[in-house]
Design a binder for these strands. Structure first.
Lengths: 198, 198
DNA sequence: TTTTTTGTTGATTGACGAGTCAATAAACTT
DNA sequence: AAGTTTATTGACTCGTCAATCAACAAAAAA
């Protein structure tokens, strides 16, 4: 019963299944069969649509980054002030869609993949660049010359919070993580203004 | 030519080789043969001393944590003030021995391993607990009620800096990373005192 | 000096898994 | 209607690798 136009549907299912399986098992040692099974098809079909397992991984990475990017863009669209821009990024970073177990677990594994696969490394680099530049737009008016360092630090903190989330027991607490990022920011901005005034 | 008393020597060589190989390849997909070869012996011998590959991984984790712990303890021993205690931890965290490529790459992979292997998870938990409690001793006199949150944040930042180091091109720059941690701290302490005074 | 313990490895087993292939079938084209 | 493209899978190939085994050597113990 070959319905035509299956390709995008199947690819999409595979991408989601890839994220789910990596997140679930907490490892890149997932078999194509596992992924295909979760996506409701044979492993041969998975290989038919994606040439290789690596391609599936890369597509899954792109998917996660796409969701993240879209959410950030959306929030940024309605931000009026520099502070609101940063807040938007923080909130998006720890939103339910992005900070869910699966995605975070997968994200960590993609980071590992980036050590091996140049293509994956490039994707992570894109993410880092985008994050930093987004933060800088908001930070420069608020922190001037310090914006650079603060953005770098906040980026590392966000990644660190993701990293730790992976091993935290219980449900993800995006609100707490976001608060931590906010505190970081508040402390740095307070310190900066203190420096300017005194 | 069986010299006696080889066991500790072999085990040590295997542990170091494990870290090197994981760090070098950036993945847990290293074969026992690879590790054994680097350690200068047959894979059968590696299996003889460690029952399984997993045991080698766990021993390697313990080794990394031991080095880290020793360095922190050493630095802490000579720290006189709360501030010096924190500084000691920061410096140790980004010391040449701990912040070297291999070790950082291995550390990331161990984090992934912790998602799968309970024993590994426990080791990471030990590390996190120890780091936090060490930080708190120094932090409490300086930040009072905020010490808890600051310690948590600083821990996450340190882990995040490790995470990012993995993908940074060029030689590790422990000094820059340490400075970032110091900035975090300075900003938070400044904010805290500001809050107290005003 | 026999026996046991420790060190050591080449060869083998057994499992698993990525990727390919051949075959089947339903649509679409001409 | 014949030919082509798209969808789909079971079976298979081929390689890899953790773990085990059988065997050998040398030191230590009995």
């Amino acid at each position: 019963m070959p319905k035509l136009g299956m390709e995008p549907i199947r690819k999409d299912a595979l991408v989601k299944a890839t994220i789910t399986e990596i997140g679930r098992t907490g490892s890149l040692d997932v078999t194509v069969s596992q992924i295909a099974k979760r996506a409701g098809m044979s492993s041969a079909l998975a290989h038919h649509y994606f040439g290789s397992k690596e391609d599936m991984f890369l597509a899954a990475m792109r998917h996660i980054m796409t969701i993240y990017g879209a959410e950030v863009r959306g929030a940024l669209g309605v931000a009026q002030t520099p502070m609101a821009r940063i807040e938007a990024i923080v909130v998006a970073s720890f939103s339910a869609a992005n900070f869910r177990r699966e995605a975070v677990g997968a994200w960590l594994n993609f980071w590992v993949l980036a050590q091996t696969v140049p293509q994956a490394k490039r994707l992570v680099a894109v993410y880092q660049r985008r994050l930093k530049s987004n933060l800088l737009v908001g930070l420069r008016p608020l922190a001037g010359a310090r914006a650079e360092a603060i953005a770098e630090g906040l980026g590392a903190l966000i990644d660190g919070l993701y990293l730790r989330e992976v091993l935290r027991p219980g449900a993800p607490d995006g609100a707490a993580a976001a608060q931590m990022a906010r505190d970081y920011l508040a402390a740095h901005l307070a310190a900066t203004s203190l420096d300017i005034n005194g």
